[in-house]
Write a protein that binds this DNA or RNA. Sequence first.
DNA 1: AAATTTATGTTGTATTACAGACTATATTCT
DNA 2: AGAATATAGTCTGTAATACAACATAAATTT
Lengths: 171, 171
Amino acid sequence: MAPSELAAVTFEKPLPGFIPGDLAWHLGMILRGHQTLFADAVAEMPCSVRGYQMLSTVVHHDPANQQALGAHLGIDRTVLTYLLDDLVTAGLVERIPAPTDRRARKIVATAQGLDLLKKMEARVAAAEQTLLTGLDARESAQLAGLVSKLSMAVHGAQPGANPCEAMDHLG
Amino acid sequence: MAPSELAAVTFEKPLPGFIPGDLAWHLGMILRGHQTLFADAVAEMPCSVRGYQMLSTVVHHDPANQQALGAHLGIDRTVLTYLLDDLVTAGLVERIPAPTDRRARKIVATAQGLDLLKKMEARVAAAEQTLLTGLDARESAQLAGLVSKLSMAVHGAQPGANPCEAMDHLG
DNA sequence: AAATTTATGTTGTATTACAGACTATATTCT
DNA sequence: AGAATATAGTCTGTAATACAACATAAATTT
């Protein structure tokens, strides 16, 4: 990185009143607070937040195989194996042979899984509302838009983004 | 994003087109992307991102003791002990007896720590810029404002907020 | 001055992620 | 077609990490 770039960058900081690194602190704080509310909301779910996220992804994004699911959530494949085991044991999802590839397994939600997801979604939505209590409606919507836009940009810039690309265009 | 959409959205769901839990996904994605850039930027720093955050907090917020530092960063006190050990070993900070309380230790940066921090801050600022590449200047500033406001609200709602309150009013 | 609380440090333990090896199937190359 | 290589998933062992429980010293309360 050229020193001249650094100088330029430091000079036009888009985050007035921010100490470098503050963005991470704020994001971390929000995520921590969210995590707490979230975990509380999905307490019944095996594997807590990640259990919910896996189930939700399976239902709403219909990933072709475990890898796609893992890539979408940033979960390592070896980790995914035992997380999914828990969901299977709880009867929320099933591993069925993928139609197109006999190596792969497709994860599908059971009726029970769909039921639980529906119940959990109401609670999660409420938790998100609670988190956003500090902002008014206009600000919340603004934040949602910006966060969504930025995460897509980040997502696109990530090297490991490929496996979920197909999935991410559904929406 | 059209402002008209925003208004329509306000009354129940503040997050149009969001599946419940998407907020966490987006935040997680951003934080993960940020973490990668951040870790890369502060590679020289012991304890990586948290090392930077501890040093930055010590310098910019001057916490009265380790507890305050830990609370600010959401780090358990037993964990803080060995993280700080690393920074001390690296000669970046010192534990000095707190003037007001002989039980407590005040963490102060060494000259070397200040030097390194200064260097790291330039890189961290650049990393934040890079992260925000997907947004234009106005959006970045908007996001920074919203994130800051929300994190403060979350922070205030947290039970463990007390120890850092004094610090957080400094700016 | 005894009891309680607070700040920090230490030790042991349980969780967790991940690297590496392995099987089965797909794909590519010659 | 057959060989070589790549990919999906699982399993095993290891290393990192957080945290609970205990210990110590000093402050605060009763």
